[in-house]
Design a binder for these strands. Sequence first.
DNA 1: ACCCAGGAAATTC
DNA 2: GAATTTCATGGG
Length: 280
Amino acid sequence: MEYIAFKNLITIKNVDTLDLKNTLDCGQCFRWSENEDKSFTGVAFGRQITVRKNQNDLILENTNENDFLSFWAEYFDLNTDYKKITGEIAKIHPVLNDAIKKVSGIRILKQEPFEALITFIISQNNNIGRIKGIVSRLCECFGDKICDNVYTFPTAKKLSALSPDDLQPLRAGFRARYIIDAAQKVNNGEVDLEALRTMEFEQAEKELMKIIGVGKKVADCTLLFGLYRIEAFPLDVWMKRAMEKIFTDMTPKDFGEYAGIAQQYIFHYSRTNPDLFKDI
DNA sequence: ACCCAGGAAATTC
DNA sequence: GAATTTCATGGG
């Protein structure tokens, strides 16, 4: 990876396998918004940055070399060869090959584990627009202020001390008590998120499902997007539909060690092309 | 008014 | 145990 640090900018050269819109607006994260000039602004690790593409350069604004090397390079998974991976998974099924061509440049972000857990608890039986609204209010109410209208994601410790009534301003509905239970079990060590990085996969799912409001799907999303367990293959309504109508006779195991990346291509492709499911 | 949304708990059969 | 209902909220 070749990069240039200049003032508050980091420019990474030759990033031809990252599409910002397909990556940041594909339902894996909920704290990024697109600006009028096609750049994106978001918050992670307690910092707000703006990212943009200029040809094959990826430009990070409002950061520094230390933060870039400490976490942004990992967050955008810049040390992984996505060309090689997509080349491999494209061979699995012709429709997956189509998906990779049509919605190219999706990467799996390495989000913070607790944020992934809470945001995907909020995601259940919900739509992406409303998920973003609830997450935004969660940060505004209980995160730390970074600058005007910009807040960090709240800590498990902070949320663990609250009651569902305290979350009423979020308008999260029945999910409020799930958020509290997750925060409490993470805060008191009953669920050790960091341990899930190396734990055997099925065991890691079980650990997360100790939390009220976490079933297999939310557990798999937490593992995929928060702990970089890219063998995870979350099955939501869109994915189940795709498995029934398109990937007939296939199981998640058939998608291999990069199943999570395949899953995200299928999910995003399905959602942006709902006509795929018309009477096949 | 009705249906759906990156589901899971509670209830019923 | 497997199938169905309910849960809270907002957009289309």
